[in-house]
Nucleic acid binder design. Structure first.
Lengths: 139, 139
DNA sequence: TTTCTAGTTTAGAATTATTATAAACTATAT
DNA sequence: ATATAGTTTATAATAATTCTAAACTAGAAA
């Protein structure tokens, strides 16, 4: 799954966001971004996978801090759901989701797969930041 | 705010969903549906308002149970958010939302205000149940 | 009308997700 | 090398929700 050693790139990326390139953050970067495909996760699943067989153990608090920092920095995107748990996406490009009500799984929909021909004017003084479509599916 | 005594209607509505018309459920029905305009709420706010000055006190557990039952029965709709708290909407018609990142408030967008000219085919064996658009806005 | 029973409500305990705390540690500027 | 601000950590605290089991009640049946 891991593509190559992009460590130097992550060091720069973190520095550019005023985040010190600690070994914990770098390990999480590698886990999240050294991949061909983007994916969805929760803090719970990230924590389990990161700490499964790693040399260094990263505390849960750090996982929370890092996910929050990466989201603020724009490396991750929080997903809209109707659950009481945060879901994150390593795909930060504008895109949409299928939400399967049976399996409760989210699948990406490429932004080119959906086209809008009419969009409302935002309230006065506000700008549209982005637009997401969630399509609920079931059997 | 309360339009009229729709009690009989609610009794029928509840019976048709195999929910006994208890005084707690009827009181919650009146609070939620005896209105001209639909609105958004959380269990926390519903609990506060329901128990502010009522004759009967409804326990928090019952508020949870009832909101869950009403959602399953299709009287309420859960809103998509990126928070760790459930938001509900008394507007169950297909519609969309503005999500203000500053104030963290949701506003309804009428269905007719958004038109899609391209929608993806759902995965094999699945049907589209509904489609929601969330437009994130900011200053 | 009374009785019975399954469905409902309730207070409080338990669980789950997240955030706060404060002490120990570390990256990096000087 | 040293100082220090930023970071990590274990643990406690908080918040939202679900569970539990006893008490209560709507409505069917006698």
């Amino acid at each position: 799954m891991i593509i190559s050693d992009n460590l130097k790139m992550y060091v720069q990326k973190l520095r550019s966001s005023n985040l010190r390139p600690t070994k914990q953050r770098l390990k999480i970067c590698q886990f999240l971004f050294d991949r061909k495909k983007t994916f969805h996760f929760t803090v719970e699943t990230l924590n389990k996978k990161i700490n499964k067989n790693g040399a260094i153990k990263i505390s849960l608090a750090t996982i929370y801090n890092t996910v929050e920092a990466f989201t603020s920095a724009g490396y991750l995107k929080e997903i809209l759901t109707s659950k009481n748990k945060s879901y994150y996406d390593t795909n930060i490009k504008s895109h949409h989701h299928f939400y399967d009500e049976g399996s409760k799984e989210l699948t990406d929909i490429h932004y080119s797969q959906i086209k809008l021909s009419k969009v409302p004017v935002p309230p006065k003084g506000k700008k549209i930041k982005n637009l997401e479509v969630v399509i609920r599916i079931q059997k």
